[in-house]
Write a protein that binds this DNA or RNA. Structure first.
Length: 130
DNA sequence: GTTCTTACA
DNA sequence: TGTAAGCA
């Protein structure tokens, strides 16, 4: 965990508990673009900071595509305002998706309860006849 | 021993 | 994203 200015792919993998494959994949997806020292990747503090944001976004449930949008803003429109605005928007969408999933789950749960009730009634009826 | 690219159950 | 293969 060299506290210096550069990190190897293994350094970051260890620090953030992700696999080497994951870091290479994120690069492939354009979320990070570590420098190269010959052929090897050389991660800067900036890459490290981005990775931190990527993982945070993933925890919240944002897609890599959405995370990239935020990261891009952090690069281009260096103003923190547009970035926060974007994040706020994505968070709202994420919440809506979760709420919808919750509604779907509740609906299935209710159906299960109804079927359960039905089954018990059938069993009670048969028992009563014997 | 470590990292890289490519391909695929 | 995991894993295996063949290099550097």
């Amino acid at each position: 965990m060299p506290r210096h200015d550069h990190f190897s792919i293994s350094d970051l993998a260890r620090e953030f508990d992700v696999t080497l494959r994951t870091l290479r994949f994120y690069e492939e997806q354009g979320l990070i673009e570590p420098a190269r020292q010959g052929r090897q990747r050389l991660f800067s503090r900036r890459d490290r900071a981005r990775l931190k944001l990527i993982l945070r976004g993933k925890r919240i449930g944002l897609s890599l595509q959405e995370i990239r949008e935020i990261l891009d803003l952090y690069e281009l429109a260096r103003d923190e305002a547009s970035q926060s605005l974007k994040l706020l928007h994505l968070l709202t969408e994420r919440r809506d998706r979760l709420l919808e999933q919750r509604r779907d789950i509740d609906a299935v749960l209710d159906e299960i309860t109804q079927l359960e009730t039905h089954c018990r009634q059938v069993l009670d009826t048969m028992t009563a006849h014997h």
